[in-house]
Design a protein around this nucleic acid. Structure first.
Lengths: 256, 256
DNA sequence: TCAATTTTCAGAACGCGTTCCAGAAACCAG
DNA sequence: CTGGTTTCTGGAACGCGTTCTGAAAATTGA
């Protein structure tokens, strides 16, 4: 709690703010460590001292999002455990849809960096958040008594992250994120539902089937099943360098 | 069919073989475009002409894996649609467990490159592979008649990729990959099961609950719920640069 | 065979993430 | 205040993915 730590904290926040601003302004392009340091009015080395790596900065940004997600989930929490579980899907969808541009870029960049890519994938914290209402639902007789709350919770998290990943890749839009989160949660819970819970989940399932988009965006061409790996189809190929040179400007390599 | 294309094909295969060899030998470190070109006895520019980018090369490698996965799924295909669906999980787990070192590195590297990251995420091809047996199961009365085969298939793919991602991040080992794939498939199918199908899936569900590992590897520290985004905890921090210099060798930045 | 087109090649260059460096500045304890 | 320790700073450097350049080599079509 000396002066040193206080300043370090203030600098950290300065870096995070700069990163958010930089992403907001110029997308993943332009979010370079040099630009980041310049905007935070620090040296590059200092940013590394504070966050360890670029991934560390992005991870720091994500922590903020996770925190707001936790908070938003807690407040206005439905009493019924099944409602709460689906409420988590709604809140998750809303949180990411609230700032899609920055969050898409952030999550996309985080996927590449091995740091923070492991984190938040299937942490005990996330699982616990789902596990508790599942246990309550089991006690209330809404889910089967022989269901293992932890396993179900674990797979709800997996489903959540899988759907979120599609949203990040722009396979799903904001609406699609919400409906798919609700659908996969409902589907899994339906598997271990019992009694009144089963009826309620079934009703919701039928409603969702009407809401789900029939076709989702194909980001790339579908897999050609014949002659794979023959190199017959390589995506995103520019015309190879050739005799007639007509080069355009450098395409600002966005490796992140 | 001209001589040119034939040579281009041969070169492509040479590059892919070199890439596989290089990954096998020295991991993700050492898989640089320069090293790749050197080992394939081509110039860097030629590799770019053939594959467009490093991601293109990796994508080419992955296509081979997907092809073998398709083939292995077709042969020894169980007649019963439910068995076939779970068979797909088994085959998927076996395929990736067959060469875990290379495949982990490959999938990890592909996550970072935006090319090929979108592809194979939720393609019509993958969904169709699941959709057909689901439709058969519906007709056979093993799944609910009011279930939408395409939606269920879509979410099976999402679950598959989500679990696979955990394996790639080494949260799950080979056993964990298999059991979790089977579990998430069973859980989802159970949601829309009917009649004899429900009984069979329930039996399998109970068996799986005994097989699933109680604790899974925590890759990073669990989320500290208090004081997030305050920068209090930044993972993987080396000691900051300080007065007493004791530097070790360059740590071979593995940005991929 | 020969000319035109296309592809390959070696090497330089760019911007990136990251680390190294040496000196300057800031903090802390006495 | 002062000496010792830490941290910050600007700049150079490394290896990376990627693109550019000019010239050499190969394929094509006639």
């Amino acid at each position: 709690m000396g002066l040193r730590e206080k300043q370090a904290l203030e600098r950290r926040q300065r870096v995070l703010a700069a990163a958010h601003e930089l992403i907001c302004r110029s997308g993943s392009v332009g979010l370079s460590m040099r630009a980041l340091a310049r905007r935070a009015e620090l040296s590059v080395q200092t940013v590394y001292n504070l966050f360890g790596s670029k991934g560390g900065v992005l991870h720091g940004l994500r922590l903020g999002i996770i925190e707001t997600l936790y908070n938003q989930a807690e407040q206005s929490r439905p009493l019924d455990p099944l409602d709460y579980l689906l409420h988590l899907a709604e809140v998750g969808a809303a949180t990411f849809a609230a700032d899609p541009v920055v969050l898409r870029i952030l999550m996309k960049a985080l996927k590449g960096s091995n740091l923070g890519a492991n984190e938040s994938s299937l942490t005990a914290g996330s699982v616990k958040m789902f596990q508790r209402p599942i246990e309550e639902a089991i006690e209330a007789g809404l889910l089967r008594a022989d269901a293992d709350a932890e396993f179900v919770a674990r797979h709800l998290v997996i489903g959540f992250l899988g759907v979120l990943d599609l949203w990040v890749r722009e396979v799903l839009d904001d609406q699609g994120l919400r409906t798919h989160l609700l659908y996969i949660f409902t589907l899994m819970l339906l598997g271990v539902s019992a009694g009144a819970g089963r009826a309620r989940l079934l009703a919701r399932y039928h409603r969702l089937q009407r809401e789900l988009p029939r076709v989702i965006r194909e980001v790339d061409a579908p897999l050609p099943l014949a002659g794979l790996a023959r190199g017959a189809n390589v995506p995103a190929m520019r015309k190879p360098v050739s005799g007639s040179r007509l080069r355009n400007s450098r395409s600002a390599g966005l490796t992140v």
